[in-house]
């Protein structure tokens, strides 16, 4: 293993988003605050999700996870795609970095970005509500797995895409619907049966639900099942991503 190379690339990826922290950290926090202003003022009185848990608390926990995973996706996709388009990617392809080292560095940085944004959102929302923490380890576990999954999807999207449009298409037509239909804003089991069934096939649902369990100790699904499904999904997307990196799809042609 080229550990120092991996560490350097990881450090560079973290450094890259820290250099433009107002875009990469502050903007997503403000986005969440806007969601809160709109949804909470309209819905707080009318929606009950769980007994003992206010809609605001329910929503904020979901929004934290949503920003974590969206930013993890944005981190790998924008960094990788930009260097691919500008041609500076070759400076990562010339050194003795293996597929796996390359992958770990990018995903590691995506996880850091996700966690930093998640923490930022959590701090910003303290002003609305102080969420209880039922189990920190479960929170962290889902946050890390979620951002690793989305970081991987971001890498896959940017390897495949030839134009910026395709990246935003991937984001708008795949990531965004899956996130919105995953129970960030409502409980899945309050949906009509058809949509409920569909939602159970959405891996994002298990990320959000398991993450929420870390705050409240309550969830729609058994948290062990959610964890298993999320782990399985992570394994599948990583294996796919490592494979396309290994064969050099669209990179080493």
């Amino acid at each position: 293993m080229n550990w120092y190379g991996l560490y350097t690339l990881f450090g560079k990826e973290v450094w890259r988003f820290m250099k433009v922290a107002s875009q990469t950290i502050l903007t997503p926090i403000i986005t969440v605050l806007l969601y809160l202003l709109v949804f909470v003022s309209v819905l707080e009185e009318h929606v009950t999700v769980y007994e003992n848990i206010s809609y605001t608390a329910f929503l904020i926990s979901g929004l934290i996870m949503m920003s974590i995973i969206q930013n993890a996706f944005a981190n790998t996709s924008s960094s990788f795609f930009q260097s691919k388009m500008m041609g500076s990617l070759i400076f990562l392809l010339l050194p003795p970095l293996s597929t796996f080292e390359f992958y770990l560095a990018f995903i590691g940085a995506a996880v850091v970005r996700g966690l930093v944004v998640g923490l930022g959102v959590w701090i910003a929302t303290l002003w609305f509500i102080v969420l209880p923490i039922y189990n920190l380890w479960i929170l962290l576990c889902f946050a890390i797995l979620g951002s690793a999954i989305l970081g991987t999807l971001g890498l896959i999207a940017s390897i495949w895409a030839d134009k910026w449009d395709q990246i935003s298409g991937f984001q708008n037509f795949i990531i965004l619907p899956l996130t919105f239909l995953s129970g960030v804003f409502y409980r899945i089991d309050t949906l009509p049966e058809f949509w409920q069934k569909i939602s159970y096939y959405n891996p994002f649902f298990y990320m959000i639900d398991g993450f929420r369990y870390g705050f409240f100790g309550i969830s729609e699904m058994n948290v062990a099942i959610s964890l298993a499904i999320v782990c399985l999904f992570f394994t599948a997307v990583s294996a796919f991503c490592l494979w396309i990196l290994h064969i050099g799809y669209k990179i080493r042609y």
Binding site: N2, Y4, G5, T8, G11, K12, R16, S83, F91, P95
Partner: peptide
């Protein structure tokens, strides 16, 4: 070349990728 960094920074990074 990656426009995000200075000359010294890219050189240090590149040297790091080689371990």
């Amino acid at each position: 070349i990656d426009p995000f960094f200075t000359v010294h920074e890219v050189l240090r990074l590149q040297s790091g990728y080689f371990g």
